[in-house]
Amino acid sequence: MTIWATGLSAERSGRTILHSTDVVIRSGERVGLVGASGSGKSTLGHALIDTLQAQGQSVAHVPQSPDEALDPLRSLAFHWAEAERALGMKPDPTRQAELFTALRIEGGNLRKRPWGWSRGMQQRFVIAMALIGAPDLLVMDEPTSALDPIVAAGTMDLLDRYLQDRQTALLLVTHDLGLAARRVSRLMVMEDGRIVEDAPTHQVLSAPETRAAKSLCAHRNWLELPC
């Protein structure tokens, strides 16, 4: 199912931080939303989620840190049941087992509170919760920045494998072009609250057109920085 939203915009303190923007994401497509801090990428991500939910489309969000998604005083079993209830679903142990296996958290004790699990496992639990309702679009905001590299790479690999056979589209919101280049087939580059470039990943990397994309490309690789 193609995801589309038109006329997304946002203001803060009377200042436009997201100019009117249209977003179309094909079924199963992997898109990176990249830009510097303050370019408006997280704002666009949130505006997109709100609009799609208002339109009745199925969209799920994975925040930057599991702390934002999990209540430290509630057990993980409570979080899971709450997520199922929010989607109007009955408890489905089969679905839970399938997602936990895919994200390799099947050994985790759900009676524990979030801090009883490692951060990597917490983040995978949050991703599993986001996938309960088989959403058409998964929006991930800087999903690896709160994790160690080994855990982050493992989590992204597991998610890649899970999404591969399904038609779930992925919107990866990140300032890190290096990460996006590895994981998505299309890049939307943001600057000053606008998408200034929208093209296949290889095209943006090989021939960036705008100042923002050129800057991101020039600073993509630590070992090949411009002098």
Binding site: T144, P149, I150, A152, A153, G154, M156, D157, D176, L177, G178, L179, A180, A181, R182, R220, N221, W222, L223, E224
Partner: peptide
């Protein structure tokens, strides 16, 4: 370290950096 980590853990760490695009 980038070309030939000495330890198995060093290898894993370096390969994770490759997978995340932190290193080419």
């Amino acid at each position: 370290f980038v070309t030939a980590p000495q330890s198995a853990y060093g290898h894993t760490l370096r390969d994770a950096a490759f997978a995340l695009g932190a290193l080419e």
